[in-house]
Structures are given as C-alpha cells and as structure tokens.
Amino acid sequence: MLDTPVEPLLGLNDPDPVQIVNPGGRSDLLLIGDHAGKVVPAALGSLGIGSGDLDRHIGWDIGIAGLGEALAAMLDAVFIRQTYSRLVIDCNRDPDRADAIPAVSDGTPIPANEGLTDADRAARRAAIHAPYQAAIAAELARRDAGGRRTQLVSLHSFTPVMAGVARPWQVGVLHDRGELSLTHRTLARLRAEPALTVGDNEPYRMDGIDHTVPRHAYPDRPYVELEVRQDLLADAAGVAAWARRLATVLGE
C-alpha cells in the first residue's frame, strides 16, 4: 500500500496508452504488440537519453507497429498495441519486477529510471501497463462471452546483433507451457520455407520473465509469440514482405 496518492502520469496532450487497430476484425486471431510504440510522456521529458537511443531496439520493437497494422488489414484481425516506450514501463514484464522499468538497458543508462519511488512506479503502472493489459483482457472476455474461440499472436522484433554476437535467425517462434497447437503449426509452416532460418525459442526462450502471453493465454488458449529480426523490418518494403509471409502462415 502507498502512503500517498498516485499522481497521474499522462497529461491532456499525451496520447492514449493503447491503440486498437481494426476493432471490428472478424478473424479468430488477436494480434498484440507489447513494444510497438516509443512515445515518452511529456512529464518524463526525454528520459535523460538521446532520441537516437530511443529509436534503437532498447526503446521499442522496431517495425512491429507497421507489421501489426498490415497483418490486421490482411487477416481482418484486431491488433492491440502499446503506445509508449518499453523504457517508460515494459508491458511484457510483471510491473513489480525491477526490470519492468530498467535503470540500464543494453548498457545504456536511463537517468529518469534511477531512484524511483513506489509512487513513481505505481504512476507508470496505472497510466500505461494496466490499461494495455486491461484492453487485451476485455477483448478476450468479449469474445469468450460470445462463444468465439480466440488465438493470441504476440508480435515482437529483435536486434540482429546482441552483445557483439550476430543472430542468424530471420524469425523466431517463442513458447513455453499451455496450448501449443498454434505454435507448432506456425513453426512447421515457417520451417517449410527453405530460405528461412527459423528459431525454436530463439533468440529468446519464453520463460517466467514473459508476462503478457502467460497472463492471457495460459493454460488453454492457443498462442504463438513471433520475433522478426529488425533489419528485415527496417523499411516499408520489408514490413510489407513479412506481413504477406505471416498472413499466409497464420491465415492457413
């Protein structure tokens, strides 16, 4: 319990924390983007970092906003995406974890995230993390109430090099527990393309650090978490090509 009231973080000119693309989409796939945005609330200034750092992979998942929007149109699916940078608060982390608001990200200090009080953290959770998770839960509840079977597709992207190590995969399929039918089908279809190097729980494993998919899909909702390498989503042509590929894979 906090001893003092939590002051609102977002001002009148700050955008909503959640964007819902194609809200009337009829597909049984629900697309989500935990790290699709890189906005910083006005009250937090620049977080103490340069705009170039915010544009890097530490600030957001490069290319995912455009990929999700294109897939929503191709599949007639709903896409729920986060507006704010993962450096403000990471919506794919339990908000009680220290790394949900990192003081350092991939070696870059984030001065505005140092020495935060409980009230500071609670303000970010209330303004950004909670509304995003609530929007996903509400869409799933609405569909469940109508007897509509939903499959969850979490969209992410990864940097081609991390800690000096090149990553050879063009795309990764992440999973852990739960209902894995969609995961297995997606992995098999991507691996059927001979030109692709597909990671099975690469470059990351889904584990206890992940928050959104376990929260909304476990134990019995079909899901898949996709990671596309960021250099392949660096321009509109790359985004369009991957949207076509994934629309075919997921639409089957």
Rank of each mutant, 00 (worst) to 15 (best):
I32E: 06
G146K: 08
Q151T: 13
I209V: 15
L75Y: 05
D144I: 02
D90M: 06
D106S: 13
R97H: 10
R191K: 14
L246F: 10
A123K: 03
V165F: 03
V88K: 12
L180M: 09
G115M: 01
P168T: 13
D207Y: 07
H211I: 03
A141L: 08
A247T: 00
D176Y: 11
S105T: 11
A43T: 12
R185A: 13
P194I: 14
A112G: 11
E179I: 07
S154N: 15
P160K: 00
V40N: 05
Q82F: 00
E225G: 02
A70N: 09
H211Q: 12
R245P: 10
I101K: 01
P95R: 10
A65Q: 12
Q133K: 11
A145T: 08
D220K: 09
R142C: 11
T117R: 10
W242I: 01
D120R: 01
R97F: 06
P109Q: 00
V173L: 04
D61V: 00
G24K: 13
D176W: 08
V6F: 13
G59N: 01
G33C: 07
T117S: 15
G68T: 00
A42D: 09
P194H: 11
I136G: 01
L29N: 12
E227T: 02
Q170R: 13
H175C: 09
A119W: 08
G146M: 09
R205Y: 09
V104T: 14
A72K: 03
S46L: 06
E114P: 01
Q230K: 12
Y223H: 14
I20F: 03
R191Q: 14
T212Q: 08
G59F: 03
I110T: 06
N22F: 07
S181I: 09
A112P: 13
A145H: 09
H35I: 00
H175S: 14
V213G: 00
E114D: 10
V161R: 14
L67F: 11
A98L: 12
D120V: 09
A188H: 07
